[in-house]
Design a protein around this nucleic acid. Structure first.
Lengths: 206, 206
DNA sequence: CTATCAGTACCGACTGTTTGGTACAATATA
DNA sequence: TATATTGTACCAAACAGTCGGTACTGATAG
């Protein structure tokens, strides 16, 4: 494949990512992709065998991008800073998009989990890795005494991922980013990060 | 519309509810409904103006059923019993269905929120009422001293709803009901209900 | 320099099927 | 008979995907 072909392929993939994100897999027609990317049908099928294959590549690339996002957002001196930064990055992302499309993994999980095992596995791996990253942060926090020792980091990490996905879902249903914001605030409060107004649930300091 | 007609209509609605639940709105074709219910096309359109109208009625009835479920499951002598019973009922429901279709409101929220304002409003009202019911339980619990006074019942209620929806999502992605179960266990632990193994987060009794 | 050529990129008409929806005749029931 | 109910044939549009072909490109040979 030559440079020009690669660029065209990338253009399709970029457009497809956005449309699949916004409209879901079933909700996106090949015609939608043609309209959005300007790449004609014959050419599109020159680069991709099927809509399903294209969806899979969109999904795996989105996963890779998300892993990068995880690394970048879980930064900070102390574990609590890392979590706080993570939450802020998530909120910023969804507010920036005005909640449009929400989380592509959450969407596809609900749309495709019962219909496409390959898709489901990719999405599953996203949540596994997300949880693992957060669990590591929590373990460090527990070792350093920043968070109560009697907490199960695995369970807490899963709890965080679930609440974030649920918060996005609620925010989309209400068309109000505050729903997500306040879910994140409660999570932060749970671990004694910032937003003390919500109540402190972490290490009992008072 | 006579008795027989009403019965036919109900049969369509029942079948449509199950298929919309399992496959989503876009993922369900009229042909699917005909195959499932045995009601022929002309007859189907005798009772419903369009697929969208049918989806709306499915959704509003599901909402009414869910409100009944809320009442029935939030039963118990003490607030903590009510919440525990609620969580158990949710888990039992999804385990009984083997996670098939998950939560019809969560699914439709992600699928349709950006596409159909009417649907979104119905779903939104579900989450609002769900949150309200739980908030009332929490307020009672706070008044009775069962739960710490410094907690914001509104924020906590939203947190619970979000985590339940997120837990269902994770469980479907992993095909493992344990993901939901453990999210519910953490929530229970938060309010000092049962499952102490997860850690007690509620009123500090020890 | 330039004719040839293989491989890549690209195009739009076409296929068979499925879509949501309609028209209307046939049948059942009051 | 009159009306409610049901079944079948049908429709245009949309669907994912195919096909035969053209246009371009860079390398090679004369």
């Amino acid at each position: 494949m030559r440079d020009k072909g690669i660029r065209t392929r990338e253009r399709v993939l970029a457009g497809a990512t956005e449309i699949f994100h916004r409209q879901g897999f079933s909700g996106t027609s090949i015609h939608d992709l043609i309209r959005e990317t300007g790449v004609k049908k014959g050419n599109l099928y020159h680069f991709f065998r099927s809509k399903e294959e294209m969806g899979l590549e969109v999904l795996t690339r989105a996963r890779d991008d998300f892993f990068t996002f995880l690394e970048n957002s879980l930064q900070g001196d102390r574990p609590s800073d890392q979590l706080a930064n993570h939450f802020e990055s998530i909120l910023r992302y969804h507010e920036g998009r005005n909640l449009l499309g929400g989380c592509i993994f959450g969407n596809t999980a609900l749309e495709m989990s019962d219909r496409n095992e390959t898709y489901r596995n990719v999405i599953h791996s996203v949540f596994v890795e997300w949880r693992r990253s957060i669990r590591e942060v929590l373990e460090t926090a527990i070792r350093s005494g920043e968070v109560r020792k009697d907490l199960d980091p695995e369970a807490m990490a899963r709890h965080i991922v679930a609440t974030v996905e649920g918060g996005i879902l609620l925010a989309r249903a209400s068309r109000n980013p505050a729903d997500l914001k306040e879910c994140l605030a409660v999570l932060a409060g749970l671990f004694g990060i910032g937003g003390e107004a919500t109540g402190r649930w972490g290490k009992q300091t008072g």
